[in-house]
Amino acid sequence: MPESVPVRCPACRRSHRYTAPSYPCACGAPVAPPLDLDGVPSPAGHRAWDEEWVTVRCEHCGLRGEWPRPELGCPCGTVLLIPVTGPRASVPAERPEHPAARSAPVRTARDAVTAAVRYLRRLGHEDVHRADRRSPSGIGLVGRGVLAQVDPSARPATARDVECLWLAAMTESAACLYFSVGGYDEETQVRADALGVPLFLLDLTGTPRPANGPADTLDADGA
Rank of each mutant, 00 (worst) to 15 (best):
residue 112 A to W: 09
residue 89 A to T: 10
residue 123 L to S: 09
residue 87 P to A: 08
residue 75 P to H: 13
residue 73 G to N: 11
residue 81 L to P: 03
residue 72 L to D: 06
residue 116 A to H: 04
residue 126 E to I: 08
residue 71 E to V: 13
residue 119 Y to T: 00
residue 143 G to E: 03
residue 120 L to A: 07
residue 79 V to N: 05
residue 122 R to Q: 13
residue 112 A to K: 09
residue 138 G to M: 07
residue 89 A to F: 06
residue 144 R to E: 11
residue 127 D to V: 00
residue 85 T to W: 01
residue 134 R to Y: 04
residue 92 P to H: 14
residue 105 P to L: 13
residue 134 R to Q: 10
residue 87 P to D: 08
residue 126 E to G: 09
residue 121 R to L: 02
residue 96 P to H: 08
residue 120 L to V: 06
residue 101 A to I: 07
residue 132 D to G: 06
residue 101 A to F: 00
residue 70 P to R: 11
residue 123 L to H: 07
residue 109 A to M: 10
residue 126 E to T: 12
residue 75 P to R: 14
residue 125 H to Q: 05
residue 131 A to D: 09
residue 86 G to L: 08
residue 143 G to C: 05
residue 116 A to D: 05
residue 144 R to N: 08
residue 78 T to H: 08
residue 129 H to L: 06
residue 105 P to M: 14
residue 93 A to I: 03
residue 137 S to C: 11
residue 72 L to M: 07
residue 76 C to V: 14
residue 102 R to E: 12
residue 88 R to F: 06
residue 115 A to I: 07
residue 91 V to R: 15
residue 108 T to W: 10
residue 129 H to Y: 05
residue 98 H to R: 09
residue 126 E to W: 10
residue 90 S to H: 14
residue 101 A to K: 04
residue 128 V to T: 13
residue 126 E to N: 09
residue 107 R to H: 15
residue 113 V to N: 06
residue 91 V to W: 05
residue 137 S to G: 15
residue 137 S to Q: 12
residue 115 A to M: 09
residue 122 R to D: 03
residue 125 H to K: 11
residue 83 P to W: 00
residue 109 A to T: 13
residue 70 P to G: 09
residue 123 L to I: 05
residue 114 T to S: 15
residue 139 I to D: 00
residue 75 P to T: 12
residue 80 L to F: 07
residue 111 D to A: 13
residue 121 R to W: 01
residue 73 G to D: 14
residue 143 G to Y: 03
residue 88 R to Q: 13
residue 109 A to L: 12
residue 127 D to K: 02
residue 88 R to N: 09
